[in-house]
Amino acid sequence: MPISRIQRLLEWAALLFFVAVLAGPIAVTVVSSFKFERDIFTYVPVVAFAPTLANYADLLRDWPKFWSAMANSAVITLGSVVLVLAAALPAAYAYSRFATRRLGLTTLFLLAVRMFPPLIITVPLFPIFTGVGLDDTHLALVLLYGAFQVSMATLMLKTFIDAVPAELEEAAMIDGCSRPQAFFRILLPAIRPGIVASAIFVTIFAWNDYLFALVIAVERSVTTPVVLGEMLGMIGENNVGWGTVFAAATVQMLPVMGFVWTVQRQMLRGAAAEGVKG
């Protein structure tokens, strides 16, 4: 066999090795969520098994707390995306279109503040939120997630707006559009991929965060990752089995995976369509 063939084989082997290491554990978890407890609780892994939805039925019946946490996570994630886009879009527009040296300097603040380790602010925020009656509310987490994502969203949207020639909006304004109209009708559609990408980053952060939720959400606003952590800690007691926890983990991860996947496809299709139109 020539050396180039051997090298190619080794490349494939390395690729499949890393795919197995990174995606394999996730696949095992999702697959195991469809196993009966007796097929999970064996020393020798059961590969051929009768699939069951029993774990999901258990999750539905025994864990109303998990489902209310899912609802909390959904509300908080949606709120965070809306807050970040509402704050970041106008700011990104200003940074791109009205850039001056002094305005640009404020991005130093945006960047610097984001570099602080989040754990630091949890210490004073807890008494502050309690003081203003925001403790254990959805709004508290929305504000936190918004604050930690708004800088990156602003700077990312700025680069997208930079790529759209200002002449487009100016032409529309000469044709009688007001500046806000030009912003909404001309610019927003042009930077849709950037808006989608920012929304994805915020969604992943808010949906998956554990630290802030653990400290701020005590009961009413508790989110899915915190409940998942509790469930994991209870395995073996109170009849909490691995199967139920696998089902919960699968339900928690699926929306984000599905969301990212569909949106990616849409973005690819959108890009392809633009290309055809020329």
Binding site: V19, A23, Y210, L228, L232, I235
Partner: peptide, 18 residues
């Protein structure tokens, strides 16, 4: 290869605890 990015620390902990 990018799939673990979508995992919450809680889910990662579940996967590896098992």
């Amino acid at each position: 290869l990018l799939a673990p990015m979508a995992m919450s620390p809680a889910v990662t902990a579940v996967i590896w605890s098992y």
